Amino acid sequence: MGSVRTNRYSIVSSEEDGMKLATMAVANGFGNGKSKVHTRQQCRSRFVKKDGHCNVQFINVGEKGQRYLADIFTTCVDIRWRWMLVIFCLAFVLSWLFFGCVFWLIALLHGDLDTDYKDDDDKSKVSKACVSEVNSFTAAFLFSIETQTTIGYGFRCVTDECPIAVFMVVFQSIVGCIIDAFIIGAVMAKMAKPKKRNETLVFSHNAVIAMRDGKLCLMWRVGNLRKSHLVEAHVRAQLLKSRITSEGEYIPLDQIDINVGFDSGIDRIFLVSPITIVHEIDEDSPLYDLSKQDIDNADFEIVVILEGMVEATAMTTQCRSSYLANEILWGHRYEPVLFEEKHYYKVDYSRFHKTYEVPNTPLCSARDLAEKKYILSNANSFCYENEVALTSKEEEEDSENGVPESTSTDSPPGIDLHNQASVPLEPRPLRRESEIGSRR
């Protein structure tokens, strides 16, 4: 089982795998120059863009038009607004034209077009017409509009002379109601789609790998820009990579689940303020055997998904993003964004995407760390350097704002901070800030 798991979770494809794949392509008759073999020097295209759209195009789909027309309502909801407006206008105009032609044909076959009612006051002739005051196609078209929109100006009306005319008036009224219901329903469904809710759900630009509770963890940050909550919010993550099976089958995008606390339930989050999602790199993680150097040379993509129900409509929305291997910062942490004021908490989104480097973060893999092949620094050293990194950030910001350097908390000259780390230190809580992250 261990060997199978290692093969499945191998992220960085070796040169031997690339040569094996190329040999397979030639042997199977696919070596026509169009096949692409992804190596370390040639990274694959992003499968999920940063804005959440999937970078996929469908080609050679059989009976595409028929399949889309069979699900016309979903098609109308998914198309762009400009095409929705075109369909909206065409549906009414074509129905008016169709029934206008029908009423014109009825008048033509009944002989109503030969009668001039402007110079004739004989009401008996008017009563013999199928539709009064309809003696041309324009008049028939206007009567069709008046019937379907129930305008009723009063000059044109159907008589009991022709039952077919009466039937067409009733039929057009029913068709008009159906068109109204369909168009209004599609427009309302399109307006109520929770897709735009994703514009106020954000992911951090970069993911980070750092120590948390004595273990290497992959972390990324999510935030909600609205005050309205995302009900039943939960997160998922998958690692996408290519691999070759033991039988020699090439899988271009193998999807591997990344555990973010599904078993323990901590994948469900209360997204009021930005939260750091934590994936513990343990023996079940696809990143277990990867060191910093392996991450730098790897070719994979981590897709992160945030799902929840919109509070206003109770409709489920899904926000997506992805991180390539070069977008994962090893040995970094996110800057705090949640600050405790006197009577409330304040979230500073200008710090949302910012990170700071944490010294002495192990550069080895989580496996080597678990097997004690890498000796961690003293816990006080880690905490102290973590505090120094934050303090230096604040000093830089104070210097930019014009604060005198004498007010900063610099260490005395001639003292090495790293050498001082081995000395037991008193706890130094942050002056006014605390970061709330997901705790395992």
Rank of each mutant, 00 (worst) to 15 (best):
H279A: 00
N55Y: 02
R333C: 14
L69M: 13
A22T: 13
L230C: 08
D299I: 04
P274T: 09
K393W: 05
I328G: 00
R351L: 15
T317D: 08
T149V: 06
F171R: 00
T391G: 13
F92S: 08
C76Q: 08
G248W: 03
Q420F: 06
K118I: 04
A129H: 03
K64C: 13
Y374T: 14
M84P: 13
H279F: 00
C217E: 04
C54D: 14
I256G: 07
T6V: 08
N28V: 05
Y356W: 13
G33M: 13
P424Y: 11
L338F: 06
E161T: 08
N360M: 12
E232R: 08
S399Q: 09
V235D: 02
E394N: 14
G402N: 12
F58D: 15
T316M: 13
R226F: 05
W83N: 14
W81Y: 06
Q148T: 02
S434F: 09
A314W: 11
S322Y: 01
G223T: 12
L113F: 08
Y153D: 03
R80S: 04
N7I: 04
R44N: 13
Y349L: 13
E371Y: 03
F203P: 02
L239P: 01
P252M: 15
S406C: 12
F352D: 01
N198R: 13
C89M: 14
A207R: 00
N28Y: 05
P362N: 00
H332V: 01
N360Y: 07
E394S: 14
G100A: 09
V77I: 13
I184R: 01
G223C: 10
V134Q: 01
G308Q: 05
I275G: 10
K195Y: 06
D299K: 05
M191G: 05
L69F: 12
F99H: 01
V134A: 03
F203K: 00
S127H: 06
A298M: 09
V170H: 02
F58I: 09
D213S: 13
E247M: 10
V170M: 04
S434Q: 10
I305L: 12
S228F: 04
G18V: 04
C383G: 14
W104H: 08
G100I: 01
I258Q: 01
L21S: 13
I59K: 15
E307G: 08
K36P: 13
S377N: 09
N326E: 14
S264L: 11
E396H: 12
S399I: 12
K195P: 14
Q57F: 06
P362A: 01
S242A: 12
D416C: 11
R67I: 03
T409S: 08
K196G: 12
I145V: 07
K125R: 14
L324G: 04
T74I: 06
P413M: 14
F88Y: 08
D296A: 06
Y349G: 09
H234Q: 09
F182T: 04
C101R: 01
P362Q: 00
P412W: 06
L430W: 07
E396V: 12
F103A: 02
Y384F: 12
K193P: 06
S264A: 11
F382I: 12
C319I: 13
W83L: 06
K215P: 00
C319V: 12
L113G: 02
K20T: 07
I251M: 12
T313H: 09
F103N: 02
M19N: 09
H279V: 01
E335W: 02
E327T: 00
E357H: 03
P424H: 05
C383R: 14
A189C: 15
V202H: 09
L90G: 05
Y323M: 09
T115L: 05
D299T: 07
I305V: 12
D121H: 14
K34R: 12
D284I: 13
M19Q: 12
R40I: 11
L21M: 03
C43D: 14
V260C: 14
Q420K: 05
K196C: 12
F262R: 07
F99C: 00
L225M: 05
G31Q: 12
D368S: 08
A421H: 13
Y288F: 10
R46C: 02
D160C: 07
L225V: 13
C162M: 00
S13N: 09
D267L: 03
S350G: 11
V208S: 00
R432A: 15
F47W: 06
D51I: 03
L69I: 10
P194N: 05
D213P: 01
W220M: 04
A379Q: 13
A421W: 05
E16G: 05
L425I: 13
F339D: 14
R268K: 10
M19S: 09
V358E: 15
R46D: 01
P359W: 02
W330D: 00
N360W: 09
V388S: 15
K292Q: 11
V388I: 14
S204W: 00
M191A: 12
A192N: 07
I305N: 09
L271C: 09
L85E: 02
I375D: 14
R46Y: 02
E63W: 15
G154P: 00
S392K: 10
E435K: 03
S13V: 07
T391M: 08
D348G: 02
R212I: 04
K342R: 05
R236Q: 12
S228Q: 13
W83E: 03
F167Y: 05
D294V: 02
C217Q: 11
I179E: 05
G100K: 01
R67S: 07
D289N: 04
S365N: 02
P424C: 12
C43M: 11
E280Q: 11
D213V: 03
N28T: 12
S434M: 10
S285Q: 01
L329R: 08
T74D: 09
A27M: 05
F382E: 04
V77L: 11
F103V: 12
S408P: 13
D254N: 10
K373R: 12
T316R: 08
Q318W: 09
A192C: 04
T409E: 14
D257T: 06
A298V: 08
